[in-house]
Amino acid sequence: MKALLWLALMGVMTGAQAGEEDSTPCDTVDTDQQAYACAAFNRHTAERELKAAFDDLLQRVNEQSADPAQARELNAGLQAAQTLWIRLREADCKLETAAEKRGGKALEAALNTCLAQRSDDRSEYLQSLAQP
């Protein structure tokens, strides 16, 4: 499981590190503690990008809709879908990390890695919606 965690962590690092920051906790990952810090960083980065993608989608819907009532209805539907998706993401990641020892750093790193990957995927999906 640890080898799988490292592979997943490396995949997320390439996506999440492409942000605006020059130095990250993922620059040097030689210890378990550094791997944990990198996974946490990737999760926070991915969730920040997810929020930005969702906010951008809401703005695109508002700009493209000629009818304000329709825009409000679409935005309400998007909010509901996002809330459900977040619950699904949390449940899926808990299932994926169920084999990890409870309360350990490996569990937290695996959970953070899963959440980051799912958030990155969702961000891409949201960015594809309501394109002009």
Rank of each mutant, 00 (worst) to 15 (best):
residue 113 T to S: 09
residue 129 L to W: 06
residue 84 L to E: 15
residue 95 L to K: 05
residue 121 D to I: 05
residue 22 D to P: 03
residue 53 A to L: 05
residue 28 T to M: 07
residue 92 D to G: 03
residue 74 L to I: 12
residue 51 K to W: 07
residue 35 A to V: 08
residue 8 A to E: 15
residue 43 R to I: 02
residue 40 A to P: 00
residue 65 S to K: 04
residue 98 A to D: 12
residue 67 D to F: 05
residue 74 L to M: 13
residue 80 A to L: 11
residue 50 L to E: 02
residue 33 Q to L: 12
residue 122 R to P: 00
residue 125 Y to Q: 14
residue 55 D to W: 03
residue 114 C to F: 02
residue 44 H to D: 15
residue 55 D to P: 02
residue 61 V to H: 02
residue 108 E to Y: 08
residue 31 T to F: 15
residue 46 A to P: 02
residue 53 A to E: 06
residue 59 Q to W: 01
residue 3 A to S: 13
residue 72 R to C: 00
residue 12 V to Y: 01
residue 21 E to P: 00
residue 110 A to Y: 01
residue 40 A to Y: 02
residue 69 A to V: 11
residue 60 R to N: 11
residue 113 T to M: 04
residue 116 A to Y: 00
residue 87 R to T: 08
residue 111 L to V: 14
residue 7 L to D: 10
residue 27 D to Y: 08
residue 20 E to F: 15
residue 81 A to F: 10
residue 126 L to R: 01
residue 72 R to D: 15
residue 100 E to P: 01
residue 43 R to Q: 11
residue 128 S to H: 04
residue 69 A to Q: 15
residue 128 S to W: 05
residue 27 D to V: 13
residue 83 T to D: 15
residue 89 R to F: 00
residue 122 R to Q: 13
residue 66 A to E: 13
residue 107 L to M: 15
residue 94 K to M: 13
residue 110 A to W: 02
residue 17 Q to N: 15
residue 65 S to L: 05
residue 13 M to W: 01
residue 5 L to F: 07
residue 21 E to T: 11
residue 16 A to W: 00
residue 86 I to Q: 14
residue 41 F to W: 13
residue 81 A to L: 12
residue 14 T to R: 08
residue 39 A to Y: 02
residue 31 T to G: 07
residue 42 N to S: 14
residue 90 E to G: 03
residue 109 A to R: 00
residue 128 S to R: 10
residue 46 A to W: 00
residue 128 S to C: 06
residue 90 E to I: 05
residue 12 V to H: 00
residue 18 A to R: 14
residue 30 D to Q: 12
residue 51 K to L: 12
residue 82 Q to H: 08
residue 87 R to L: 09
residue 112 N to D: 13
residue 104 G to A: 11
residue 22 D to F: 12
residue 39 A to F: 03
residue 23 S to N: 08
residue 26 C to G: 08
residue 95 L to H: 04
residue 98 A to Q: 11
residue 44 H to R: 09
residue 92 D to V: 07
residue 18 A to L: 12
residue 12 V to F: 01
residue 113 T to C: 05
residue 132 P to R: 06
residue 132 P to W: 06
residue 70 Q to S: 10
residue 93 C to F: 03
residue 126 L to T: 02
residue 88 L to P: 01
residue 106 A to E: 12
residue 123 S to D: 07
residue 111 L to E: 03
residue 82 Q to A: 10
residue 113 T to F: 02
residue 10 M to L: 14
residue 102 R to M: 13
residue 44 H to E: 14
residue 62 N to M: 09
residue 71 A to Y: 10
residue 81 A to I: 12
residue 96 E to G: 12
residue 82 Q to N: 08
residue 115 L to S: 03
residue 108 E to N: 13
residue 32 D to S: 06
residue 44 H to K: 06
residue 61 V to T: 08
residue 123 S to Q: 10
residue 84 L to F: 07
residue 111 L to H: 05
residue 68 P to N: 07
residue 82 Q to K: 00
residue 70 Q to D: 15
residue 29 V to H: 01
residue 83 T to H: 10
residue 59 Q to E: 13
residue 60 R to V: 08
residue 123 S to N: 06
residue 54 F to V: 05
residue 126 L to C: 12
residue 53 A to F: 03
residue 11 G to T: 10
residue 130 A to Q: 11
residue 47 E to Q: 13
residue 84 L to P: 00
